[in-house]
Simulated scan of single mutants.
Amino acid sequence: MKIRCPRCGTENVVDQKAAAYYYNHRIHSYFNDLSGTILDLGCGGGFLSRYLMDNKRIKVIYGLDQDEACNDQLTDMTVLSKFQFLHSDIAQLSKVFAEQTLDFLVSRDVFMFIEDTDRYFDDVTNLVTSGIRQMGWFISQNERMKNQLTPEQIVEEYRKRGWNVYLEPLEWYKSGYFIRADRQ
Rank of each mutant, 00 (worst) to 15 (best):
M1F: 02
M1L: 12
K2E: 14
I3F: 05
I3A: 10
C5D: 12
P6A: 01
C8K: 12
G9R: 09
V13K: 12
V14F: 11
V14I: 13
D15S: 09
Q16N: 11
K17R: 13
A18E: 15
A20T: 03
H25I: 00
R26W: 03
I27D: 11
H28S: 03
S29R: 08
Y30K: 13
D33H: 13
L34E: 05
L34S: 10
L34A: 07
T37Y: 01
G45K: 08
G46L: 05
G46E: 04
L48I: 14
L52F: 06
M53A: 06
D54C: 00
D54A: 15
N55M: 06
K56I: 01
K59M: 01
K59W: 00
V60D: 03
Y62P: 01
Y62G: 07
G63N: 11
L64P: 03
L64N: 11
Q66W: 00
D67I: 05
E68V: 12
E68I: 15
C70V: 01
L74H: 01
D76V: 10
T78Y: 00
V79F: 11
L80H: 12
S88T: 07
D89P: 00
I90T: 13
Q92F: 04
L93M: 11
S94Q: 13
K95I: 01
V96A: 02
F97P: 10
E99C: 00
Q100S: 14
L102K: 02
L102N: 05
D103E: 15
V106K: 04
D109L: 14
D109W: 04
V110T: 15
F111C: 06
I114G: 10
T117Y: 00
R119M: 07
Y120I: 02
D123T: 06
V124P: 04
T125F: 09
T125H: 10
T125P: 02
N126G: 15
V128K: 07
T129M: 10
T129K: 10
S130M: 11
I132G: 04
I132F: 07
I132A: 02
R133T: 08
G136A: 02
G136E: 06
Q141E: 15
N142F: 07
N142T: 08
R144A: 07
N147G: 04
L149P: 03
T150N: 02
T150Q: 13
P151G: 05
Q153L: 13
I154D: 04
V155L: 11
V155M: 14
E156H: 09
Y158C: 11
Y158G: 07
Y158H: 13
Y158Q: 08
R159M: 12
K160R: 14
R161C: 10
G162I: 05
G162N: 09
V165I: 06
L167W: 11
E168T: 13
P169N: 12
E171C: 06
W172D: 14
W172T: 09
Y173D: 15
G176K: 05
F178A: 09
I179G: 07
R180T: 10
A181L: 03
D182Q: 13
